[in-house]
């Protein structure tokens, strides 16, 4: 006789029924409620195909059920590579790639939530990916264009927290050496000319966008 595993049963008494509305209100998540669970996204996803723990259909179902903590603290939402294959195949135009981006933004925002019940903790891969996104953007606000050695260097340093975070850089040593060999690393900031005003203007856009969203 098979026994029902207790962990698999979803306890809806702790679920947050408002979670789906929170996602719908986030830019990118507008089409969430159109999903009819056909699983086209999961079947076409290259990450699922390669055997990693990632299931787009499951994530959408969890959001619709209001399993807030399970979704926002899972590694799964950070596994997406953003290839838009699911968005392309979806018969209901749910645009899952944009939903993932919305979920990531919500997860990051809620790490500083004052309400302790709603506060979330990012998983390891989430912390890394968020750190990478943040350094990438900071590089743009700083130079107007990205400067790879600068932001990747900072990502390696802060990715897992100083002082040992820099050690993850060693995993990529072959790649870095390869790029050095082919002279593909830029040693000077891009657009270093004094007549290049794009960095200042880009920063202005960033500040304005931030003040609008507040």
């Amino acid at each position: 006789m098979s026994t029902i595993s207790i962990e698999k049963i979803i306890d809806l008494s702790t679920a947050d029924p408002n979670f789906k509305n929170e996602v719908v209100n986030e830019p990118g998540g507008e089409h969430l409620k159109k999903c009819f669970q056909c699983s086209s996204c999961t079947l076409t996803c290259p990450v699922t195909d390669a055997g990693f723990d990632f299931n787009p259909r499951k994530i959408i179902r969890q959001v619709l059920l209001g399993m807030r903590k399970e979704v926002l603290e899972s590694t799964a939402i950070w596994q997406c590579v953003g290839c838009y294959e699911c968005t392309d195949r979806c018969p209901q135009n749910v645009r899952f790639t944009e939903i993932i981006e919305a979920l990531r933004r919500i997860a990051v925002r809620n790490t500083k939530n004052k309400d302790k019940k709603k506060r979330t903790k990012l998983p390891k891969q989430g912390r890394l990916k968020h750190s990478f996104d943040k350094r990438f953007s900071e590089s743009i606000w700083l130079w107007g264009r990205t400067w790879e050695p600068e932001y990747i260097g900072r990502y390696f340093m802060y990715g897992r927290g100083l002082p040992f975070g820099a050690l993850i850089g060693f995993r990529y040593i072959s790649m870095i050496l390869g790029m050095l060999k082919k002279f593909k690393i830029e040693f000077f900031p891009p657009g270093f000319h004094p007549w290049n005003s794009n960095a200042r203007k880009v920063r202005k856009i960033y500040k304005k966008a931030k003040s609008i969203q507040k």
Binding site: G28, G82, E101, R104, R105, K134, S137, A209, K210, I212
Partner: peptide, 11 residues
């Protein structure tokens, strides 16, 4: 690219 969208949508 895709990175800034994940941090700040409007910017």
């Amino acid at each position: 690219a895709l990175e800034v969208t994940a941090v700040d949508h409007l910017a």
